[in-house]
């Protein structure tokens, strides 16, 4: 094989004899023009992505800053009331921020142990055929549209929770958390599983050779070695949960009030934007306030992804 490729390189650079495969006119033109054109296209698409991100950010910034011409920044950031259509309107982002925080924290509390546990099972315990079945099932899990999950939440999970906890309504934070946990699971499982599988075989051999049990090997050697990858998985899971909109819009009850418990209706940043954008007048204060909420959301997800990236980079080293 290597000899062949060597020959083909040689035939391009050193024409042997006068008639020996001379490049035709078209070949030459293609080389002279084609290469730079392809290169330019690729360069353009690369730059376009950068430009899009930057423009989105600018757009978001411009419209949200418009809010603060009329509405004080402090009152937006620290206000505890979100009453966009009362007079005068209140645009305190704290209840929404707390709503997102509650729902996210509980979702993470539920899905991290479950996700890391399944990853451990898949990479360390499950026999090969079961491993393959589980991995494809998890991919299918990832492909369930969130609106379908929201639907299941409304007709099944919410009534179950209402009866279990004796609530006045099942449309509450916990319903959202459970569904979001479910949505973050595939991300957490597959990335953690990669991290665990990536731990060199030699570590396991060394541990078993010293007389460690499977559990000791897993807990004390494999898990710590995979920790950066697992942390990255968790951060990406959080990113997914914070940004998710449809499910929380459908099942968390949409009450933009200061949440005191996960069992009461609340509203997240994302659900607020999605729920209210249709009712606002373009260019109004309310409209700009929703952009400001979007900016807060953007800042949070950006920070989370940034941290996840740091961990992933450390994991690859």
């Amino acid at each position: 094989m290597p000899e062949n490729s060597h020959e083909s390189v040689a035939s391009h650079t050193v024409p042997h004899g006068p008639e020996a495969d001379r490049p035709t006119f078209w070949t030459r033109t293609r080389r002279r023009i084609g290469e730079p054109v392809v290169e330019a296209c690729i360069r353009l698409s690369g730059l376009a992505v950068v430009a899009f991100v930057f423009l989105i950010f600018l757009f978001l910034l411009k419209d949200s800053l418009s809010l603060f011409r009329e509405y004080p920044l402090g009152q937006f950031l620290f206000g505890t009331q979100w009453l966009p259509i009362s007079d005068p309107p209140q645009f305190g982002v704290v209840p929404l921020l707390l709503g997102s925080l509650y729902v996210t924290a509980w979702a993470i509390l539920i899905c991290v142990p479950l996700g890391v546990g399944s990853a451990m099972f898949i990479s360390e315990v499950a026999p090969k055929h079961l491993k393959n079945v589980l991995k494809s099932l998890i991919e299918i899990l990832a492909s369930i549209p969130s609106v379908v999950l929201g639907f299941l939440g409304i007709i099944w999970l919410a009534p179950v929770l209402r009866n279990t906890f004796g609530l006045s309504t099942g449309m509450c934070g916990l319903t959202g958390s459970l569904l979001l946990a479910f949505m973050a699971l595939p991300t957490i499982i597959s990335i953690s599983e990669d991290a665990l599988t990536g731990v060199p075989r030699t570590y396991r051999e060394a541990a078993y050779g010293l007389g460690a049990t499977r559990w000791q090997t897993l807990w004390r050697i494999v898990l710590p070695s995979a920790s950066s990858g697992i942390l990255a998985a968790v951060m990406l899971g959080i990113g997914r949960v914070v940004g998710e909109t449809m499910v929380v819009l459908m099942v968390t009850g949409n009450a933009p009030v200061m949440p005191r418990s996960i069992l009461q209706p609340l509203r997240t940043l994302t659900a607020t934007i999605a729920g209210e954008m249709g009712e606002t007048v373009g260019g109004s204060e309310h409209y700009f306030a929703l952009f400001a909420v979007g900016l807060v959301l953007f800042a949070i997800t950006f920070a989370i992804n940034f941290v996840a990236d740091l961990f992933l980079r450390r994991a690859r080293k």
Partner: peptide, 16 residues
């Protein structure tokens, strides 16, 4: 395995 210890081909220290 405590009584019969093993040293491997490539040094396999843990990342600890």
């Amino acid at each position: 395995r405590r009584k019969v210890g093993m040293v491997f081909q490539r040094p396999n220290v843990f990342a600890l």
